[in-house]
Design a protein around this nucleic acid. Structure first.
Length: 286
DNA sequence: ATGGTAGTAAAACTA
């Protein structure tokens, strides 16, 4: 009888454990192109206080590692993973959770500083998050544009070989591509633009086809004039709706199927100085 | 005909 009682007790505990594991957990992620993180702390810090995201992915921190403002995040109980270069590029992941750095740039690369300052892969609980600052490409006849196209094929190889479409994976950041005509103003004039040329759109869509969903579009299908970037050289670009949706949060099915909300927050632009990008947010119940 | 500005960091480069 004691054996049966023990069995019942154990079974009961297994059920409770399973219940705990299966319990929905909220996860909110955001991406932000800072264009200089030190110049945007007045935007980023209050925004973090307001939203309490589980993970903020930043691109274009434009700061060397020795000058990165680690303390302002750590004194708020946030963990930071970052890598940068002097004046250009630079990525960071900010999270209240324990975080493990998987790699910078691409795994097994030949220590390319620029690539490391453009991509971070981290693990937060069971989630793998890749934060990318995809090269802009300069012009379609520039070698930099070929490197941009290669970035997408290398990402696809990486996701396929290391993870697979059924593993919980988020790829987010400044992708420098407007996937569809509704994702940019005057698309008919942008066919030769490095962020709208058919070759980049196709390279990007190949990754969607492989098994990732554009989280913003899951919540706002077909909604026009939803932009994440406004060129600060164009006067009153926000009010005139002269923007691009080039910052994305993509997720594999196990994550994307649990999406609850997604939006582009452009409010912080109005505080003091403009920032060239906005916060793109996605919320899941995993 | 191809601008406009912001950031970094010290003159020009990238976006």
């Amino acid at each position: 009888m004691t054996n049966i009682a023990t069995l019942v007790f154990l079974w009961d505990n297994i059920l409770k454990l399973k219940e705990n594991i299966m319990k929905e957990r909220s996860f909110t992620i955001a991406t932000f192109n800072a264009n200089g993180i030190r110049a945007r702390l007045h935007i980023i810090l209050p925004w973090l206080d307001d939203y309490n995201v589980d993970c903020l992915c930043i691109q274009e921190t434009k700061v060397q590692d020795k000058d990165f403002p680690v303390e302002v995040f750590e004194e708020r109980g946030l963990n930071v993973v970052f890598r940068g270069q002097k004046s250009y590029n630079g990525v960071a992941v900010i999270t209240p959770h324990p975080v493990e750095t998987v790699f910078f740039g691409f795994p097994d690369n030949d220590r390319n500083r620029e690539e490391e300052a453009r991509q971070i892969c981290v693990q937060i609980a069971d989630l793998t998050i890749v934060n990318s600052y995809v090269p802009q490409g300069r012009s379609i006849d520039n070698p930099a544009f070929q490197r941009k196209l290669q970035w997408f094929s290398r990402i696809l190889n990486l996701l396929d070989e290391k993870f697979g479409p059924s593993s919980p994976l988020i790829w987010c950041g400044d992708m420098n591509v407007a996937p569809e005509p509704i994702d940019v103003y005057a698309p008919e004039l942008k066919e030769n633009h490095v962020c709208f040329h058919r070759s980049v759109r196709e390279a990007f869509k190949k990754i969607l086809k492989w098994g990732m969903s554009d989280c913003f579009r899951l919540i706002h299908p077909g909604e026009p004039e939803q932009y994440s970037f406004f060129d600060y050289r164009i006067p009153r670009a926000v009010e005139r709706k002269l923007g691009w949706r080039i910052d994305h949060i993509l997720a594999t099915a196990p994550v994307a199927s649990n999406i609850k909300d997604s939006f582009i927050d452009l409010e912080p632009r109005k505080k003091n100085k403009p920032s060239d990008h906005t916060f793109v947010v996605a919320h899941f119940q995993l």
